[in-house]
Every structure is written in C-alpha cells, then in structure tokens.
Amino acid sequence: MAAGPYNYSYIFKYIIIGDMGVGKSCLLHQFTEKKFMADCPHTIGVEFGTRIIEVSGQKIKLQIWDTAGQERFRAVTRSYYRGAAGALMVYDITRRSTYNHLSSWLTDARNLTNPNTVIFLIGNKSDLEAQRDVTYEEAKQFADENGLMFLECSAKTGENVEEAFLDTARKIYQNIQDGSLDLNAAESGVQHKPSAPRNAINTDQPANKEGCAC
C-alpha cells in the first residue's frame, strides 16, 4: 500500500513567537504554502498550520502554532508554549526594538516550555539589506551566548525559511535519538506515531513500521 501523505512517524509541535509585525505568520505561510502573503492581517490569538517533512528518512508532521505578537494577546499566547518541542523566536533585522525584546521572549520561552525545547532564533526580512538595523554578527553572538540556533531568513523570498524549520526538526529528532528527549513523558511536544509500544523506539522502529505498513 502506498504510503500516503498522512503516514508519518512523529508529530512535532512548534510555536512561533516574537514581536508584532516581525513576520511570524508570513514565515509560517511561506513554509506551509511556499507563498509570500503580502498584506498579512494581524493574527488574532493563535493560528496553526501543518506540514509533513522528512528527517533522516522519517516522515515528521510539524504542527506549528503561530502566535499573535500584539501585547494584548500575551496572556493568551503564553498558554501555547506548553508542550512545544520547538520554539521559533523571530525578530525583524530592520527594527532594532524587536531584537531588543528578544531576551524577554527568551525568558518566556525558557520558563514556559520544557528544558529540551529547541529554540531557534530567526532574523526575518533579510531581503531588506538596505534597511538593516541589526548585524548578523551581533545576533549570532546573542544566539551563541544563549545556546540558540540561528539563521537570517526572508519570508518574502523564502530564503532560509525551509532550513530554519527543518534544522529545528533535525535537532529535535537528534534529541530523540540521543535519548535526551523522553517521549514517554506527556507534553514533550513530540508524539510518536507507530502503534508499537511507546518505549520501543529508535532502532527497532523502522522495522516495526515496515512490518505493519503492509
């Protein structure tokens, strides 16, 4: 039986955070639809999108929760950090204020997610080089100091967007392989799909899959 697009081994839950207008929804849209949304309305509360990707031969479904950046939604969006396996923290390279707020976003992310959550820093709007307000080196240093992964992307051109989402997934998958992410625990943000017992993961997993995929 052909493996349809719905057949996947894991679900990873992501959350996208960052100031208003940095392009969170556009990044999501670019990633899920491969299109740039020119006049994207403000997100109300939270929205979500999905896409199935492949990491190390494993099909993984990403369930991505895109939060509203407006301050008034902060109380609402905070509740969505719970159970995210990956957090994409976005700032706008043409607006320093959005970069300056990163530490508060990071505090939120660290406090509200589990310790294994992979946090990925994204400097969006890299296509607007002329209006750049935050240098790559500065942000890179910030990322390194805080142990974050980092890329500059453009939701408009699509540059590096795919990479940011996929790199996060790779890192999470690696954490699972290392055993540092415990799938048995609730709210790890990762759901393991095969019907095989949950503690029998990793190496014997592909075999299982073949066995029951018919």
Binding site: Y81, R82, G83, L112, T113, N114, P115, N116, D182, A185, A186, E187, S188
Partner: peptide
C-alpha cells in the same frame, strides 16, 4: 496536563 505537567514537571 492539569495534574502532571511535562517531563520533570516542565511545563
């Protein structure tokens, strides 16, 4: 989610 939370209590 109400009573046990995440792995090691986070979240």
């Amino acid at each position: 989610a109400l009573t046990r939370g995440g792995p090691g209590g986070t979240p």
